[in-house]
Design a protein around this nucleic acid. Structure first.
Length: 207
DNA sequence: CCAATGATTGACT
DNA sequence: GTCAATCATTGGA
């Protein structure tokens, strides 16, 4: 079996780990089979020192995994319907993490397509919630050790990636100026950039 | 207790 | 370009 990324890889600042994750491969194993994605877009979050991080205001039940050791998955549920996955970085207590935003499916494409039946091949993992859906990642995987060979979610090294670009993070409502989104220039699986738009008032709000 | 909203997506004008 | 879906989590009353 191929060697996984060592835990030391993740024991660094998230903004240092993030570009090194591009080209690496995330594999999800289920009884139905394996699906693997080659990462093409990620975002770094610096935990306690980052206003855009879920961990900015300290440890809660939801973000507890981020305060643990590096090399584990932090999965959260958002907008009432989507999951997103991060990989915890740096030492315990810092709550740094890298959000996995997009990639190219390189194994298990049939299973990924079955999980996302209305998606084109290009869009299978083009976005953080799409990536999770294609790989079958949900809350149950939060805390999974991606450095362990027996884990249902693992990360393997990739070949060095040319053309890494950086820019502001997508969809965040604070610290928009920090250029901690990293992607592979020109890769079709990179998600379209969208600025954060505050939600409008609903009918119930006006009643 | 309760109201607000989100590290998004897909559908639609 | 605009907008609704849909609910866990959060922070404040």
């Amino acid at each position: 079996m191929d060697a996984l990324l060592p835990r030391a890889f993740f024991d660094r600042l998230a903004e240092e780990v993030a570009p090194d994750l591009l080209g690496c491969v995330l594999t999800r194993s289920t009884p139905e089979g394996d699906v693997s994605v080659r990462l093409t877009e990620v975002e770094a979050y610096a935990g306690l020192r980052d206003p855009a991080s879920h961990a900015y205001r300290g440890q809660t039940g939801r973000n507890a995994v981020m305060f643990g050791p590096p090399g584990h998955a932090y999965v959260y549920f958002t907008y009432g319907m989507h999951f997103c996955v991060n990989l915890v970085c740096q030492g315990e207590g810092t709550a740094a993490a890298v959000l996995l935003r997009a990639g190219e499916i390189i194994e298990g494409g049939e299973l990924a397509a079955a999980r996302r039946p209305r998606s084109t091949e290009r869009d299978l993992a083009r976005g953080p919630a799409r990536l999770c859906e294609a790989l079958g990642i949900d809350r149950a995987l939060s805390g999974a050790d991606v450095c362990s060979p027996s884990s249902p979610l693992r990360v393997l090294p990739g070949s060095p990636v040319p053309g890494i670009r950086t820019g502001p993070r997508t969809g965040v409502s604070s610290a928009k100026d920090v250029p901690w989104r990293f992607w592979v220039d020109g890769d079709p699986s990179v998600s379209p950039y969208r600025v954060h738009t505050p939600r409008r008032r609903t009918v119930i709000d006006r009643a």
